[in-house]
Design a protein around this nucleic acid. Structure first.
Lengths: 229, 229
DNA sequence: GTCTATAGGTGGATAGAC
DNA sequence: GTCTATCCACCTATAGAC
């Protein structure tokens, strides 16, 4: 008996709750999704959330933890590959790709859960809840530090503070791309431009844009008339 | 008598409600801010919101409308100045500055309401509420169209679809910068880098980054090994 | 216009049977 | 582990006195 690793139906209830919550959170927001709606969609009982996760907040945290860890590992793994390939010289383009691509792939994943999740992640990153953001920040910490560190090494002339700002510009551009994709599609439709690009094309657009920004070859002086240092 | 344009205290109640709502929305989120908390903070009665704005949704819309119109006008005004100065040639840097600076100035305005508002705006842009986002989209439409149009003229070789994507990258970077400034400050503190930059410096960082991205001089090929076209 | 009081509904959480 | 029934806090909105 028990032919699978997770034989008991309790696990299934747990993941059903996670799936339903993830979906409703992404669609309606966390505060707007009631436990009643979540358990109903999951085909579970109202009390099951409290049993399995202790509280709604516990459920929220579990939703994020489930997919954040794989995302982080993928990013860090790609970063390591960049370093191996680079053999000393750090390849900026490879680093940006390593950071951007995992999120973009999730955006167009076959798994609907992945798609819902990145939308949710983007929303939450900009959301008002302080405690939730600091939870996310904690989970993201290692990735952020590894990437800013390597990006700094790839751009020796750029001070650390500037690196961090550029990193945040990048996070914003990426988050908006994955979270507000619906808006973009809508806008393109209004202009009779069908949005037929696949993940790779959009990723390349974004990475190219970011790469230029990071390389900073623009003719932008510090002030309107001041020359560059 | 009635020595001012807005003599009756009803106007004051109205703006007090708007101020309180704006602040609480930005701090706790819209769904999380109850009318009780808002009216209490405004020193008004619970029923006053329904009297002055019809419903909570009416209040929300009024909060956005109040500051969105000046922001739009400032952006469009700056854009017109760019066109006048340029005398035919469209200055990309000027356009980006015209789009970015008004929001950044609000971020560090002396008026606390301005600061709260941009935070709220950034949050809502990424939020889940469909109807609210489409309201914002409608209010933003003219600005978006004018800017993408002029940006396209400033970059004759770039197809319209690419312009729109880059515009969204820019919006994301800007929104994250104004909405998550707290996060950035926190991160900089953790690294013992005091975040003492004034608005102008941060704006210049962002505009430089974006300018490079828009100019697109990066050495990013379409694929990992393909040469540029 | 402002206020009190309350209706009418939904939220998260729990007790206790099964 | 699952379910029903229920508690109680809180929400928005409104009716009606002042």
């Amino acid at each position: 008996m028990t032919p699978r690793h997770s034989p008991d139906p309790s696990t299934d209830t747990k993941t059903a709750l996670l799936d339903a919550a993830e979906r409703l959170f992404a669609r309606d927001g966390i505060a707007e999704s009631s436990l009643r709606a979540i358990t109903s969609k999951a085909g579970a009982n109202l009390a099951s959330v409290n049993y399995h996760f202790g509280s709604k907040e516990g459920l929220v945290r579990a939703v994020f933890a489930r997919r954040l860890e794989p995302l982080n590992r993928q990013r860090l793994g790609s970063l390591e590959k960049c370093l191996e390939q680079g053999q000393g010289v750090t390849d900026l383009h490879c680093l940006l790709q390593a950071f951007v691509q995992p999120a973009m792939t999730m955006m167009r994943s076959q798994d609907a859960g992945d798609r819902e999740f990145v939308k949710l992640l983007g929303q939450t990153l900009f959301g008002p809840s302080v405690e939730l953001r600091s939870t996310l920040f904690e989970e993201f910490r290692e990735v952020g530090e590894r990437f800013t560190s390597e990006l700094g090494r790839a751009l020796p002339g750029v001070p650390r503070k500037e690196i961090i700002w550029r990193f945040h510009f990048m996070v914003g551009a990426l988050a908006h791309t994955v979270a507000a994709r619906t808006t973009v599609s809508h806008q393109l439709e209004c202009l009779n431009l069908k949005e037929d690009d696949d993940t790779e094309v959009i990723t390349n657009r974004l990475v190219s844009f970011l790469l230029s920004g990071w390389e900073g070859l623009a003719t932008a002086p510090t002030s309107t008339k001041e020359p560059e240092e």
